[in-house]
Nucleic acid binder design. Structure first.
Length: 580
DNA sequence: GCCGTTTTCGGCCCGACTGTTTTCAGTCG
């Protein structure tokens, strides 16, 4: 299912930027708003249009007569004429100037008018030649900053994996907490929401000595460069290139600030709109009565939500995807928690491409308090990953048997991550598969096959009745590879029918299924397993990433099979005819 | 361009920091 939503959103953003440069008032806001909505719309715009035409498009918040016709045009022709029309009025390359930190639409158009600067290179040359310093609103400092921005643009990476951002965010927060000036320090932003990629870190500190906090923050060993440093807000670029913002607020604003800096933007705009309707004003400082200016809430997030007539909403749900309506109706799910996890059902050892032995993996899992694990090394087709031949599989099962004798206090299940081959058959004969406790069925080839083909392949594999868990179902690698072109509805319906558990693979670059897909699968009443797919005893913490992803998909404890005690887990997998 | 338990016209979230100014515009989130 290739998504047109993202493409349309990108075009609407482009229109907004163009209108900004042309100094059109308000219209950019309207376009940007719809772009944001489409970016995270769970349903396909093309479907909406197919069902109800332009009228249905106008049901999407922010979409009116003009934008709906823009969308319709795109769906029919693959382009939006307005972009070409606007493009004629804007010099080639000028849009790129706005990618520079500190250059917005006003400065971009001003520089063009004054100096005929069109490209980033033009601007860098002008700055180097000292041609900017005498322009109104510019000075020597501006030239220096522009040159630094050009430098940064070259090096910058768009977004970082949650698995990269979360550890460093935690590290920074821990350091801040050790400082006596810091009363509280929290991670906010998309990291707190558990988004699969993170653009920058948002850190919130409560303190009565903001200056001291800023000093500590801007001189942390992780910091590469300080972009700005004020009394309550500073921005730095970390040595790994990730940007980090720190805000300091007083304790009475803690809840409102945490709420505000957690976002996302759409969620916040919605809350502020609700506040306005009630005659309140919501900011990071608190919820206030508009007339009297009296603070009504702000110390805790719960208080802020409650005063707006809502139950407290889990950070991972704050995407304006219906959670506000659910909170108003008291219908929020009780999300699954990290502490609910009792085991990991997808692990590799040095029997295939893992770094540690069966015993080492089992001991690491046991030290986490896990009740059970499944060892699931690769099947024979995974030649490059030292996939096991039938003969080695037999020896491997004996080795698992040995490990069970040595290590008590944790159940070690025997399994394999078995390749689903091109025709949908599995990589070992049925007789061997039936000797395993758990079969994780995964696709590792033919990623680019057309929808019908790859969907049929997955359905056929599930119909063998021998797959317990469908491993990393869409095969995506966040930074490298698109998901398979699967008909997810068919796959989820079949998984629910046959009792095949869907994996949420917690590898930082996978997070597969992803949040939106999980929510869709949940509608089919599918069951899930949150696994780490660990190849090393030190990566069990990836579960945290999988949990956040599951929570973004609104999953509850009852939806996730590896939260079950072992006796219950056995019952789940009985239906797939795999022995346990 | 969109939208309406204040509005079919007149608003559009709100506030911090920087660099330039000497009270503020632009940018950012």
């Amino acid at each position: 299912m290739p998504s047109a939503n993202k493409e349309i959103a990108a075009l609407l953003y482009e229109i907004a930027d163009m209108l900004d440069i042309l100094e059109v008032k308000w219209e950019p806001i309207a376009y940007r708003k719809v772009a944001r909505v489409l970016d995270s719309l769970p349903t396909e715009v093309s479907e909406v249009y197919k069902q109800g035409g332009v009228k249905a498009l106008q049901e999407i918040p922010g979409v009116g007569a003009t934008i709906s016709s823009n969308i319709e045009e795109y769906l029919k022709t693959g382009r939006i004429n307005k972009i070409e029309q606007l493009g004629k009025k804007i010099p080639e390359g000028l849009m790129n100037l706005m990618k520079l930190e500190g250059i917005g639409p006003r400065k971009a158009i001003f520089l063009y008018k004054k100096l005929k600067v069109k490209t980033v290179q033009d601007l860098a040359a002008a700055a180097k030649a000292g041609k900017l310093r005498n322009l109104p609103g510019f000075g020597e400092k501006s030239e220096k900053n522009i040159l630094q921005s050009v430098d940064m643009l070259k090096k910058s990476k768009e977004r970082y994996l949650l698995g990269e951002a979360l550890p460093i965010a935690k590290q920074i927060v821990e350091k801040l907490r050790k400082n006596p000036a810091v009363e509280q320090a929290e991670i906010a932003g998309s990291t707190r929401r558990g988004k699969e990629t993170v653009g920058d870190l948002d850190i919130l500190v409560i303190s009565r000595k903001p200056a001291a906090v800023m000093e500590v923050f801007t001189t942390l060993s992780e910091v590469g460069r300080v972009l700005s440093k004020g009394p309550t807000k500073s921005t730095v670029v970390l040595k790994n290139g990730l940007q980090a913002d720190l805000r300091v607020l007083p304790a009475e604003s803690y809840g409102a600030a945490l709420q505000y800096f957690t976002g996302n933007m759409d969620h916040n705009v919605e809350l502020r709109t609700m506040a306005i309707a009630k005659g309140y004003k919501l900011s990071e400082y608190g919820l206030f009565d508009r007339k009297t200016g009296k603070q009504l809430a702000g110390k805790t997030e719960e208080e802020v939500y409650k005063t707006l007539g809502l139950h407290w909403i889990e950070p991972e749900m704050r995407e304006n995807h219906g959670e506000i309506e659910a909170a108003a109706a008291g219908k929020l799910p009780a999300l699954v928690k990290l502490s609910d996890i009792r085991g990991d059902l997808h692990l590799h050892t040095n029997w295939s491409d893992g770094n540690h032995s069966i015993e080492e993996m089992a001991l690491a899992a046991k030290s986490l308090g896990y009740e059970y694990i499944a060892i699931t090394d690769h099947s024979k087709s995974e030649y490059q990953a030292h996939g096991m031949s039938e003969e080695r599989l037999i020896k491997y099962l004996k080795a698992i048997e040995e490990a069970r004798k040595k290590i008590k206090g944790i159940k070690i299940l025997s399994g394999s991550e078995v390749d689903i081959k091109g025709n949908g058959s599995l990589d070992y004969p049925d007789s061997l598969l039936k000797k395993l406790d758990i079969v994780v069925g995964s696709i590792h080839s033919g990623f680019k096959a057309p929808e019908e083909k790859i969907t049929a392949r997955v359905l056929a594999a599930m119909e063998t009745g021998l797959i317990s868990i469908l491993g990393h179902p869409t095969g995506r690698l966040i930074t490298r590879r698109k998901p398979f072109d699967l008909d997810l509805k068919k796959v989820f319906a079949k998984a629910a029918e046959l009792g095949v558990v869907l994996e949420i693979d917690s590898q930082p670059n996978r997070l597969d299924l992803k949040d939106d897909h999980i929510r869709l699968a949940r509608e089919f009443d599918c069951k899930f397993a949150i696994d780490t797919d660990s190849h090393d005893k030190n990566t069990f913490w990836y579960t945290e990433l999988g949990i956040k992803t599951a929570r973004r998909g609104w999953l509850e404890q009852k939806d996730v099979v590896n939260t079950l005690p072992f006796t219950e887990l056995k019952k789940v997998f009985r239906s797939t005819k795999v022995l346990l």
